[in-house]
Structure formats: C-alpha cells, structure tokens
Amino acid sequence: MLLEQIIPLAIAQDEWFWLFGGLFCLIPLVWFIVGILLCIWVYRDAERRGMNGVLWLIIVLIAGIIGLIIYLIVRKDKGSGQAAPPPPPS
C-alpha cells in the first residue's frame, strides 16, 4: 500500500528515479543488518562483563552510535564482572 503511494510519486517527481531507485532499496537493508550485528555484539559483550546486556542493547537501539560510545566509556574492564575464584583448599 505504502509502496504503491511512494513509487508513482517518485516517478512523477523525477525521472532519475529508475537510475537510483533499485540501488537505494539495498541501503536500509545493509545498515539494518549492521545495526542488528552491533546490538548483538553490545549485548554479548555486556553480559560477558557482568553488566545488564538487555539494558545496554536498548540504550544502543535508541541512541545509536552515541549509545555505543557511552557503553564503551562506562563498560567494566574484562574479568571484573566475573565471580571471584574459589579460595584455595586449606
């Protein structure tokens, strides 16, 4: 429905549509995949560091690259989120 409205409008507006229209369809798809991969990485990295993975996934989803930078600044160092090793046997 939406496509039917957009495509004839674009053709009517400009004859350049067919030159770039097909290629343009790829772009949101590629950036969408990149965004999803980034969110998966943030979730897994946060969980590995003992942080709340879901919370950081939501923050990065909402704030995009700014959320990612904030995550990189505040994330814990590797190992600090893991449980303390058991005491040596006495």
Binding site: F20, L23, F24, I27, W31, V34
Partner: peptide
C-alpha cells in the same frame, strides 16, 4: 556513504 559503501560491504 549510501550508494557505494553499503553495496561494497555487502
């Protein structure tokens, strides 16, 4: 950024 880089990445 919109027409060359994404297809290249792909």
């Amino acid at each position: 950024h919109f027409f060359v880089l994404p297809p290249l990445l792909l």
